[in-house]
């Protein structure tokens, strides 16, 4: 139970750090649990849900970097890891117990027991190297060099699908939105201080430079698809312009959020959750202005924070 106690402490700390966003996260979690419970009512959807949960568990297990340490130093490592997964997936699996196909729960438990015994890891170094990518993307956009290396196999199919369905209503927009959300996730790691200072710019100049530099990367990717979409759906031109502005505001939000909480060499785990919540606002029409408004607020706080370093 040692590991589990440690995780509880970490979660409590993360929730404290999230502040008001923890309420939104709680609401989203409740929503997901409710959806999950309703899916468990039917045997077929329940079965698929548990398959998805098993795959998720397997991905988490493959990519976690603390496995070696746990197997080496923690007593009963397999039991500890199993307990972690049991607690992590319990909110999405326990309700199946109260249905006619309650035995699925035990099959799922069996699967996560097996997963806990897998000692193979996928190391970060195995990521696709894309050596020549720096010929296309300048080193000053290091977030993209790093991010594209990590998400290459995810981004390429998404962009191909956006191109393929570019003349359809809404479909390319969903794919492009997913690409923006992926791009926004590139800003969750803080560069070392000497990299930040290498620009020799004032905080305001630095932020505008960063926004312009990254917008220049985004626009040539999105504009051709949106032009094709507008060509085939003339009545959609206004939506396409609005969509592009929304994507830019999400990007600006991600940049200002990063530098609002910038600390040299830090990984901004808290920002990941905030970013996911704000990204969802793009799906809910009445929340569309949220990224833009938050960017305006965060721009000022980012300037204030950068004043300490630049």
């Amino acid at each position: 139970m040692k590991l589990l106690c440690l995780r509880f402490k970490q979660c409590r700390r993360a929730l404290n750090d999230l502040g008001v966003y923890s309420l939104v996260l709680g609401f989203l979690a409740l929503l997901l649990i409710t959806i999950s419970s309703s899916l468990h009512q039917k045997s077929s959807t329940s079965f698929y849900q548990l398959i998805v949960l098993s795959v998720l568990c397997l991905i988490v297990h493959f990519y976690r970097s603390d496995k070696k340490f746990i197997y080496l130093h923690i007593k009963n490592p397999y039991l500890e890891i199993y307990l972690e997964y049991l607690v992590l997936f319990l909110p999405f699996s326990f309700s199946v117990l109260f249905t006619a196909h309650g035995y699925y729960f035990f099959i799922f438990q069996l699967l996560i027991v097996v997963i806990s015994f897998i000692t193979v890891s996928i190391s970060k170094v195995n990521y696709f190297r894309l050596k020549s990518i720096s010929r296309i993307i300048n080193s000053s956009r290091f977030e993209y060099l790093s991010g594209i290396r990590q998400s290459f196999f995810f981004l390429i199919p998404l962009y191909s699908l956006a191109v393929t369905f570019s003349w359809f209503y809404v479909v390319p927009h969903v794919f492009l939105w997913l690409i923006t959300v992926t791009f926004a996730s590139f800003y969750n790691e803080c560069e070392p201080l000497n990299v930040l200072r290498s620009n020799n710019k004032s905080p305001r100049q630095f932020l505008w430079h960063k926004i312009a530099l990254h917008a220049k990367l985004l626009l040539p990717l999105y504009i051709p698809i949106l032009i094709i979409n507008t060509w085939f759906n003339r009545d959609f031109w206004f939506i396409n312009i609005l969509f592009l502005l929304l994507q830019l505001s999400l990007l600006i939000f991600a940049i200002t959020l990063k530098y609002r909480s910038y600390q040299p060499n830090e990984k901004l785990y808290r920002n990941k959750i905030i970013l996911s919540i704000v990204s969802l606002s793009a799906i809910l029409p009445y929340l569309l202005p949220v990224p833009l408004l938050m960017s305006l607020v965060y721009f000022k706080t980012a300037l204030k924070n950068l004043n300490h370093f630049l």
């Binding site: 970060k124 990521y127 050596k131 720096s134 300048n138 080193s139 000053s140 290091f142 977030e143 060099l145 790093s146 991010g147 290396r149 990590q150 790691e189 560069e191 070392p192 000497n194 990299v195 290498s198 020799n200 040299p264 060499n265």
Partner: peptide
């Protein structure tokens, strides 16, 4: 020019890309 005792780098970039960040 400050060479810190512990050196941190942005993840998933090459040494050449890191050097190229600096003017």
């Amino acid at each position: 020019g400050y060479l810190e005792s512990s050196n941190f780098f942005y993840s998933n970039i090459t040494g050449r890309e890191y050097i190229n960040i600096f003017e």
